[in-house]
């Protein structure tokens, strides 16, 4: 590395650091103030905490019913992801390898649906789900997330299926595998990298979603994290000593996933965007 690139890199580092500080200040202030008593938040917002008020977290946990809310969010996200990954890859496989008139019509519907915003269908969706008796359990939310995400998932998975050599499947058939074995034993494991990208994308999407949850899971028993945060702010709009710890707890799982899966997230977003 010569002196010139070195100087350029130092300048870049300083600019990036400055921008990163501005970007991160909101998180920093929220975390900092989440452990202060309310009067100190009001008077010394920018100062380091003098005492650590861990009781804020206990109170926020109780107010938001965090155990229940977190469990709901995990179940809804987890089960939806299971359906999305499984059904999208099955669909992508079948549409690529066994085209029929029906599957090409279905494919056109899926493409078209990518342009339908959720707000367009949400009103009738609630009526449809309650007609089927699905609004009293987490199933209403799960089936909605799954049904909505299949279109995008199928497009991502189609690219991966096309990369699987057909000869592999043909020789498995000759060895006596039926269609299900060919898919689940031979093809499915080869889709893993793309499945992981799709997993990351939809994980964030569902975990963070507010509008679907608002229309289908908006009761005390079914409430998800995003709804609970919104409700808490409605009740304690300026009681920052309860609201801030609740925010910190709600973003903690996302922060952990970001740290653990940094590389996968970045490559997943890039590949997802270009295939979608």
């Amino acid at each position: 590395m010569n002196g010139n690139t070195r100087r350029v890199n130092i300048v870049k580092f300083i600019i990036a650091l400055g921008a990163a500080v501005i970007f991160m200040v909101p998180f920093f202030l929220v975390i900092l103030n989440s452990v202060k008593p309310l009067d100190q938040i009001m008077t010394e917002l920018l100062a380091l905490p003098r005492t650590f008020e861990w009781g804020n977290y206990v109170e926020a946990w109780k107010q938001i019913n965090m155990g229940r809310v977190m469990l709901n969010t995990i179940i809804v996200t987890g089960v939806s992801l299971f359906f999305i990954l499984l059904l999208s890859s099955m669909l992508a496989y079948w549409m690529t390898r066994h085209r029929t008139v029906f599957s090409s019509i279905f494919e056109k519907l899926l493409i078209g649906s990518l342009l339908i915003p959720f707000a367009t269908v949400m009103l009738s969706l609630v009526k449809t789900m309650s007609f089927l008796g699905l609004t009293t359990s987490l199933w209403g939310g799960i089936l909605t997330y799954s049904g909505m995400c299949i279109a995008f998932g199928t497009f991502m998975m189609t690219g991966a299926v096309k990369a699987v050599p057909v000869e592999l499947e043909e020789s498995a058939e000759l060895d006596g595998c039926n269609v299900y074995q060919v898919f689940f034993i031979i093809v499915f494991p080869l889709l893993r990298p793309t499945l992981l990208s799709l997993f990351v994308l939809d994980l964030f999407w569902i975990w963070n979603d507010y509008i679907v949850a608002l229309t289908l899971l908006n009761t005390t028993e079914l409430m998800t994290l995003q709804l609970a945060i919104n409700k808490l702010f409605g009740l304690y709009s300026n009681q920052w000593n309860i609201a801030l710890p609740a925010i910190v707890m709600s973003i903690l799982p996302i922060l952990v996933i970001n740290v653990l899966m940094q590389k996968r997230i970045v490559s997943g977003v890039a590949s997802g965007a270009l295939k979608g």
Binding site: L87, H98, V121, L125, L143, S146, G147, I150, T154
Partner: peptide, 18 residues
């Protein structure tokens, strides 16, 4: 088996409400 479940879910969440 391969198309059915996805089609049902997609219809339920998108086509029918639309």
């Amino acid at each position: 088996v391969f198309l059915g479940p996805a089609f049902v879910l997609f219809s339920l969440a998108v086509i029918i409400p639309f």
